[in-house]
């Protein structure tokens, strides 16, 4: 009897789903090894099929995407009940991801922004005897572990095939890692960065630059060139894919296990290397970070200490 696994996507861009497909031919091994019982994007299983399964009958269910509305909450709870192991797959499930940036506003703010002066969606709509209901649109996006108990996390946006492979290996392997482990190396990205040896003796920046303002040199460390690369604060594992594409890391693998709030730590690091003790000059340099929340909390706003913006 092949172990049953389930895949589901909540507030997600679908990238993580494709990531699974990215396993290329290895997807076949997976398919052989497991019996996928629920994968809405690829297989036509319905909710009621899952409800019909006995609890714990699914070995592992990989849930990606943050919790945005009540529907996603419901299914997350459902899968938790049905599965022995729930894996938060991808940074949205782990920390809230890009959708989590919605916490800079609330439901009302978002509807006002999206539907401006058009028709705003209504929860329940009755039309000649039929009713149509929409799930409740929460004010705040939360990560998966805020609503259900999560066993393991697979970081990344999306997780790289290697990370996914290793994760599956670990899960299918004999000794399971301790509950709550993030299935990726526990050091910062700089460890794997090809430009590791080009870092200066004293890393101090007189200037910070935005990505679009400059064409970075291909060899030397991007942070040393004044770009706000968050590699030092971000967990390794992606083998510095972005940096190989000559773009600074934006922190999608989340913090290392010892860091509670990714944004605060990244801010502290970047602020500390500004080479000036004069308030005016520091302020001038900081003009190159117009959106601190967007920069430091790009993927982890919901799981940050403050969680969301305080609305008046």
């Amino acid at each position: 009897m092949k172990p049953k696994v389930a895949f589901y996507w909540c507030a997600s861009c679908g990238g993580c789903e494709e990531a699974v497909v990215d396993l290329d031919e290895k997807i076949l091994d997976v398919a052989n090894a497991v019996d996928i019982v629920f994968w809405p994007v690829a297989l036509d299983f319905k909710e009621h099929d899952v409800e019909a399964m006995p609890d714990g009958s699914i070995l592992a269910s990989f849930i990606n995407g943050a919790i945005r509305n009540s529907d996603q909450l419901k299914i997350a709870k459902l899968l938790r009940a049905k599965s022995q192991v729930v894996v938060a797959f991808g940074v949205c499930a782990q920390l809230g991801g890009i959708p989590g940036l919605a916490n800079m506003s609330d439901a009302k703010g978002i509807f006002a922004e999206v539907y401006r002066d058009g028709v705003a969606p209504v929860r329940l709509h009755r039309e000649n005897g039929h009713s149509l209901s929409l799930p409740e649109f929460f004010d705040t996006v939360v990560a998966l572990d805020r609503v259900i108990d999560v066993d393991y996390y697979v970081p990344g946006c999306p997780p790289t095939p290697k990370i996914i492979g290793d994760a599956l290996g670990a899960l299918l392997g004999s000794n399971l890692p301790p509950k709550g482990t993030v299935l990726a190396p526990d050091q910062a990205l700089c460890e794997q960065c090809p430009r590791k040896d080009t870092r200066p003796e004293k890393l101090l920046l007189k200037e910070l630059k935005r990505v679009h303002q400059v064409v970075a040199d291909q060899q030397t460390c991007l942070l040393a060139q004044g770009l706000a690369c968050l590699g030092p604060a971000t967990r390794a594992g992606c083998e510095a894919m972005c940096i190989r594409g000559n773009m600074p890391c934006t922190g999608c693998f989340g913090p290392t296990s010892r860091v509670r709030d990714f944004g605060a730590k990244a801010l502290s690091a970047i602020a500390s290397v500004i080479d000036s003790n004069d308030e005016g000059e520091i302020t001038r340099i900081l003009e190159a970070l117009p959106d601190p929340v967007g920069t430091f909390y790009r993927y982890s706003l919901p799981s940050s200490l403050l969680g969301r913006r305080r609305m008046e």
Binding site: M104, G263, L267, S268, I270, A271, S272, I274, S276, N277, E279, I282, T283, L286, L289, D291, P292, V293, F296, L306, R309, R310, M311, E312
Partner: peptide, 22 residues
């Protein structure tokens, strides 16, 4: 120079707090 580092962090943190509505 410890106080200088504090100055750098607080200046950036103040800007972020503003975005957090604090």
């Amino acid at each position: 120079e410890g106080n200088a580092k504090a100055l750098r962090r607080v200046l950036l943190l103040k800007r972020m707090l503003r975005d957090f509505g604090i």
